[in-house]
């Protein structure tokens, strides 16, 4: 049949109606539809495209657009039928609703250390703490001296600290920070009281890797400096934290300890229930704390007579391992998908 633009238009209109009226529920219908309209050899629309060169030049573009849009109508009808795919049956009531949903992508996951870190920092953020960060490569002054570590403190030995540069009389020793406390020093040097901050981050120890120790781990350390800050404020803060983190019924114990940068120093223990343990559980250290030592305040130019403050610090891995019942710290750094997909 010879076509003009006019006849082409009416054919296209007829076909459009036919396409919309065709039922595509059965697989056989879908295939029939494809062959009828879009088949390479006998498809009606395919055939109509061949008409274009026979039309007058000025009509060709419009004809092309007309057919293109017809083809896309047919194609999208076919596509949506195909999307329903293999599960098509003769009656839609028989669609197999038990087939698994299509997984275009699986669910990703956050690492449990991120989960624990976020949980900890969020609690302190809600209590009004600013979140600060600092470098992992540190110098001796920020990591030790300003924090009142004596010159011959064992922590300064090669056994415990990973050194980068031994230093010389003109230059400080450089090391991997052994705690995030140097961030507090940086913040205090850079600003003026009051301070109310936590410093989360990665810290390093020169330790052999075993099931319970790794050469690096994560910490969150806190600092509050203001006029009139007391140990009662400290105890209130960390008790509130422990209740928020471990649950409001957790049993706590607050006992004296020692850290060079705090005086008095205290350790917070939680009672961890263990059904198989002869005592029904045991005390676990979760958080070190204390009143900031006057020597630390002096080192950063804060008057310890006017200002007092407290500091605290906790590991992230240990509570995460307790919480998720992870026995071997290396599991956290192995990143096996079978492990990661559980979070």
């Amino acid at each position: 049949m010879e076509h003009t633009l006019h006849t082409l238009k009416s054919t296209v209109s007829d076909l459009t109606q036919e396409i919309s009226a065709t039922s595509l529920l059965a697989t056989s219908e879908v295939e029939e539809f494809r062959i009828r309209f879009l088949g390479q050899k006998r498809g009606v629309i395919t055939h109509l495209f061949k008409v274009i060169p026979t039309l007058p030049k000025e009509d060709r573009r419009e004809a092309g657009q007309l057919l293109n849009s017809l083809r896309s109508v047919a194609q999208s009808k076919l596509d949506s039928a195909n999307l329903a795919g293999n599960q098509l049956t003769d009656h839609s009531s028989q669609i197999d609703l038990t087939l698994p949903g299509r997984q275009n992508q699986w669910r990703g996951s956050l690492h449990p250390i991120t989960l624990a870190l976020t949980k900890i920092t969020n609690i302190f953020y809600r209590m009004g703490f600013t979140i600060a960060e600092g470098p992992e490569i540190e110098d001796d002054w920020h990591n030790f001296t300003a924090l009142n570590f004596p010159d011959d403190h064992p922590a300064r030995d090669m056994q415990d600290t990973l050194f980068i540069d031994e230093g010389n009389p003109d230059q400080s020793r450089i090391m991997m920070r052994t705690h995030t406390s140097p961030v507090q020093i940086r913040m205090m040097v850079a600003g003026d009281p009051p301070f109310r901050l936590i410093a989360p981050g990665r810290v390093y120890r020169n330790e052999t890797i075993t099931y319970k120790s790794y050469c690096l781990f994560h910490q969150v350390e806190g600092l509050v400096i203001d006029e009139g800050v007391t140990m009662a404020d400290l105890k209130t803060t960390i008790y509130s934290f422990a209740h928020a983190f471990f649950g409001k019924n957790v049993k706590l114990r607050y006992r004296p300890s020692f850290f060079p940068f705090t005086e008095p120093s205290a350790e917070l223990d939680i009672w961890w229930e263990l059904p198989d343990h002869p005592d029904g559980g045991r005390w676990m250290e979760v958080l070190g704390s204390g009143m900031v030592h006057p020597n630390v305040l002096k080192a950063v130019g804060i008057d310890p007579e006017r200002y007092t403050g407290y500091a605290f610090g906790m590991g992230v891995e240990r509570p995460a391992m307790l919480h998720y019942d992870i026995k071997d710290i290396r599991t956290l750094y192995e990143n096996d998908i079978r492990f990661l997909s559980q979070f």
Partner: peptide
């Protein structure tokens, strides 16, 4: 209080990436 400088952007990153099927890892 101030949040960490990258708190907001990091949160966007975490939710975008986990939502696109990426798993977060921690390595040595």
């Amino acid at each position: 209080p101030l949040s960490r400088p990258d708190d907001q952007s990091r949160e966007i990153a975490h939710s975008f990436l986990t939502g696109h099927g990426f798993r977060e890892i921690y390595t040595n």
